[in-house]
């Protein structure tokens, strides 16, 4: 493990990545210039890593003038929480953590309650609570348009009326880079600086800029169980084995990280970032196929977003 700061590697970036980097930095600055109380949603994954890295660049030599917010469902991989705390200490950024207290009290969990209810209560509701609690008027998210069909329709500055409602028909036309940042009392904006990045861009940039990521993205021998045709890593004792299930050690890694019972691992030998990129170029499945929450129902992403999901 090294503690080097990002290497001065602007020259190593392809013109394409440089363009993406500049565009994202412009978006980050725009929000800080126009909003009173912005926050950056930090989910610990590779996209969040790139987004935070861009924020460190955008405001240099100042620190990013906003805190990070982690919505903790209580079911993240332990390695993620460890990574989160190390990163915040390393860069000296302020971290806020929020967990939905009602959800905790009701014992909502992804295993017996189902992914839909768990996501609704512990992520979507929790996020709205946190935004209200700290009165944030703008929130950065690391979503990308290439993740999903309805995301491809999303604005960079996505408008939410009071109560955090997203109405796809009531979004502002977004011409040139002339973002309309005006909102009234109670309204908020979600901002997606990585809109135009693809999964491959994220990895190539992470490599070029030497950005730290959670080790779970790289293949290692890990104990997993097979459930409903997916490989799940039992990260702690709360996940009970069902009859016939047996823990076995396999070489696996994760393409996308979330709550551990909802994030399927893939079998892989890719233990370095170069191998991960090579594997991704050859793969025939999408990033989100390992997320158990998107297949809940048709058009589920659009529906979740209407409810206030990021």
């Amino acid at each position: 493990m090294s503690t080097s700061t990002p290497s001065p590697s602007g020259t190593r970036l392809s013109p394409h990545l440089r363009q993406l980097e500049s565009e994202s930095i412009g978006i980050l600055r725009e929000v800080v210039a126009e909003f009173h109380n912005p926050v950056m949603l930090y989910s610990i994954g590779k996209d969040s890593g790139v987004m935070l890295h861009l924020a460190l660049k955008a405001f240099h030599p100042a620190k990013p003038p906003f805190p990070l917010l982690h919505i903790d469902t209580g079911w993240k991989f332990r390695a993620m929480i460890e990574h989160r705390d190390q990163i915040c200490a390393r860069y000296g950024v302020k971290l806020l953590v929020h967990t939905n207290p009602d959800g905790l009290a009701r014992g909502i969990n992804p295993i017996t309650c189902g992914s839909q209810l768990h996501t609704q209560v512990m992520k979507t509701e929790a996020l709205k609570q946190a935004l209200d609690k700290w009165q944030f008027d703008a929130a950065f998210g690391g979503a990308r348009r290439d993740e999903e069909k309805s995301r491809a329709k999303e604005r960079i500055f996505s408008f939410r009326s009071a109560g955090h409602v997203w109405d796809p028909r009531n979004q502002r036309p977004e011409l040139w880079n002339l973002y309309n940042t005006r909102i009234s009392q109670g309204e908020t904006i979600r901002v997606f600086p990585l809109s135009n990045w693809t999964e491959l861009d994220i990895w190539q940039y992470t490599r070029a800029q030497n950005i730290p990521v959670v080790p779970l993205y790289f293949a290692a021998a890990r104990p997993v169980i097979e459930r409903d045709g997916q490989l799940i890593m039992r990260d702690d004792e709360r996940m009970a084995l069902k009859p016939g299930e047996r823990e076995q050690v396999r070489m696996v890694r994760f393409r996308s990280l979330g709550c551990y019972p909802l994030s399927a691992a893939i079998e892989s030998q890719a233990a370095t970032i170069d191998e991960v990129i090579a594997e991704m170029l050859a793969t025939r499945t999408s990033e989100r196929s390992g997320r158990l929450i998107d297949t809940d129902e048709a058009a589920s992403m659009e529906k979740k977003k209407r409810d206030g999901y990021f």
């Binding site: 090294s2 080097s4 363009q19 030497n210 990521v213 080790p215 993205y217 970032i273």
Partner: peptide, 19 residues
């Protein structure tokens, strides 16, 4: 945390333009 420093060995950055 894992640093992605094996990037030094990685292949040349792509030179592709964007349209």
């Amino acid at each position: 945390m894992t640093d992605t420093s094996d990037s030094a060995a990685a292949g040349a950055a792509e030179r592709k333009e964007l349209l």
